[in-house]
Design a binder for these strands. Structure first.
Lengths: 116, 116
DNA sequence: TTGACGCATTCCATTATCGGCATATGATTG
DNA sequence: CAATCATATGCCGATAATGGAATGCGTCAA
């Protein structure tokens, strides 16, 4: 099996840096493809491809406006991501302490031992 | 070019569901490889490979304990992820409103038009 | 209808994943 | 040193993502 599809969920979709940048730009409101491409220094086809992925996972919506297609942010799909990562919030402080303790133990000649 | 390496950053590392599960288990404290593999129903080599990725992006630490190697959570690398996603927090509520408005416009026979 | 513009899609090459299986490496015990 | 347990690594097959280039398709203007 290969890596999961980028379209399988928001986690995979936002793993790509350029797609994150697109989402950031869209916080400023809906934008046509070409403008996104220009602002991010990518080709129009690349922008379209990234937008397709974002649309398939539901992070953006489209509406036609004449010749243009305006893409709009739909951030709801990011909420589960935020919540999952938020489950570690208390740990990225605590981790410092455990590392401190670890280092102190090393200096005392004792190996690790945070647990036992 | 192919997709960015899973080891390129935390975003890519946590795109894989099994690696997320490993991190969740490690919130309960350090664990040896075999126990993680058993708890997650994956093979030992797979667990080792996932742990390698997590270690390379700095989300876990290892220490030897006899024959075993105990993996420990280092959640600090998740903080940037949380912050990036958090930048969309105000939008996943606002989005509902914009969708509501969109739907109301549709019912009135007007196309889209959230913008103009 | 023809032409121009905006965007989506397809084809291609390169590259890296993930999983299974076998095996190498490391540490402990006797 | 030999045997064993715990873990890491190597190889393979299958999958697919990314970027570039070319092209298809829909819309608007004349």
């Amino acid at each position: 099996m290969a890596r999961a599809a980028t379209t399988s969920d928001a986690f995979n979709a936002i793993a790509e840096p350029q797609r994150r940048e697109i989402l950031v730009l869209l916080r400023g409101g809906e934008r046509p493809v070409t403008e996104l491409a220009r602002n991010l220094g990518m080709s129009q086809p690349q922008a379209s491809k990234h937008l397709r992925v974002l649309r398939e996972v539901g992070l953006v919506r489209v509406r036609g406006a004449g010749k243009q297609r305006l893409y709009d942010l739909d951030a709801r799909g990011l909420r589960p991501v935020h919540e999952w990562v938020g489950g570690f919030e208390k740990f990225w402080n605590e981790t410092f302490d455990r590392l401190d303790e670890y280092v102190r133990n090393l200096k005392q000649g004792k190996a690790g031992g945070t647990t036992g």
